[in-house]
């Protein structure tokens, strides 16, 4: 059709175009909603409220201290409880940093080894210093930090 504008539109060609267009519309109506349907859960915004970790009184100077906190999350149609573990470090009793225990290499969980004065990751021997800096092994960047605040001796971190 495109190469002969002066040629009359034949019945056969009209039907071809009509079938292709109607089929295209039906295909789009059926196919396009599938994309957001599949991607939906991936695009969902996570909540970013403050999580109360606990009293800072147990945090000693220059020693990463483990805090455990069970938080409620919703995954799909299931309400689950998830335990998060973070290390809190202070060098002056004023400023606190809160580090994730998730290795920045491939997301195994790191552990503070007091005798070695470092964090170790069991999966691929990643080693981090007490402030989270990479000392050895494959991790590409320091341990992730949470945004945190201290109110009346209680430390909070921001979710997400």
């Amino acid at each position: 059709m495109d190469n002969s504008e002066d040629k009359q539109l034949s019945r056969r060609n009209f039907m071809k175009v009509a079938i292709a267009s109607i089929g295209g519309v039906i295909g789009a109506v059926l196919g396009l909603p599938a994309i957001p349907y599949i991607m939906g859960p991936a695009l969902q915004k996570e909540s970013d409220d403050w999580i109360q970790l606990g009293s800072i009184s147990k945090v000693e100077l220059d020693i990463p201290t483990l805090f455990k906190k069970t938080i409620e999350t919703q995954t799909g149609w299931i309400d689950t409880e998830e335990e998060i573990l973070v290390y809190v470090l202070t060098s002056n009793g004023q400023d606190y940093i809160v580090m994730s225990n998730v290795c920045t290499h491939l997301a195994c969980r790191v552990r503070w080894i007091p005798e070695k004065d470092s964090f170790f990751c069991p999966c691929h021997n990643g080693v981090f210093a007490k402030d989270g800096a990479v000392v050895a092994g494959p991790p590409p960047r320091p341990l992730d930090r949470f945004e945190s605040k201290v109110e009346d001796g209680v430390i909070f971190i921001k979710r997400g």
Partner: peptide
């Protein structure tokens, strides 16, 4: 498309169907 979310167990079947219908974009349509 429905099998991407539906779970055929008594614990989850109904909840996953409700999730498809009310939470997912265009789940009601599918």
């Amino acid at each position: 498309l429905l099998t991407l979310y539906y779970v055929p167990t008594p614990d989850h079947a109904y909840d996953s169907v409700v999730y498809i219908t009310t939470q997912l974009p265009f789940g009601w349509l599918i």
